[in-house]
Computed example of a mutant assay.
Amino acid sequence: MEKRMVFWNTTPRHTRRDALKGLAGLAVAVGVLPLAPLAAVAADSSRNILIAYFSHTGNTRTVAEMIHAAVGGDMFEIRAAEPYPSEHSATERRARKEWEDNARPALAIEFPVDMSAYDAIFIGYPNWFRTTPMIVRTFLEQFGFAGKTLVPFCTHGGNGLADSPRDIAQSCPQATLVEGFAVRGSRAAKAQDDVLAWLQEKNFLTR
């Protein structure tokens, strides 16, 4: 379970070949990605990117790191003011109650920079009860993201994105939603090629 906010700002411009090299280096991290800034590559320097993510076990963070290595931009870790338990069943009970109550848990840290600086916001999360964790809904609704492009990505145990795109659209009705990316949590550390292919398909990488 992650216990600190990560916020980076790196925007150098490189090519897809550079991205491939960066992700190849990422793959040697023995399944655990470093928390230090990685070499970032921005497909379009005029497009300001934020990668905001919630990760409980570390799988979603792994994918967030891969996206950051490929497109650059800033990173922000979404954290609950009351941390989720590290024990699985306790987390499941709390997450289910939040989902059933349609709760909006408080954020541990407010976003430290003016959100208007960003054009595209990647939103990462584990699939809990076929949708986003409710703490992610708190983050989305705090800003609304009117006129922004939202790019969801999730880790899951078998349900893919499930209902999360619909629910993100309900939380941010004036945002544009891009088709998201999903990977099984057990495969997150080996998802580099799939991440790159998705980013290229959605025009976040130069060819």
Rank of each mutant, 00 (worst) to 15 (best):
V6I: 04
T11L: 02
P12R: 02
P12W: 05
T15Y: 03
R17S: 03
A24Q: 03
A24I: 04
G25C: 05
G25L: 08
A29T: 04
V30Y: 09
L33W: 11
L33I: 02
L38W: 07
A40E: 10
I51Y: 15
Y53C: 08
Y53L: 11
F54L: 10
T57C: 14
T62W: 08
T62N: 10
I67K: 09
A69H: 05
A70W: 10
G72A: 05
M75R: 15
M75G: 13
R79Q: 14
S86F: 01
S86R: 10
E87A: 10
R93S: 14
D101W: 05
N102G: 15
N102R: 11
A103R: 02
A103C: 03
A103E: 05
P112Q: 04
M115A: 13
A120G: 01
I123Q: 13
G124M: 15
W128A: 05
R130G: 03
T131R: 02
T131H: 08
T132E: 14
I135H: 06
I135M: 04
V136E: 01
R137D: 09
T138D: 04
T138N: 02
F139Q: 09
L140R: 06
Q142E: 08
A146S: 05
K148D: 10
P152W: 04
H156Y: 04
P165A: 07
R166Y: 02
A169F: 07
C172S: 00
Q174H: 01
V178L: 03
V178A: 01
E179H: 08
F181D: 06
G185D: 00
S186W: 08
S186N: 09
A189V: 09
V195E: 07
W198A: 02
E201S: 09
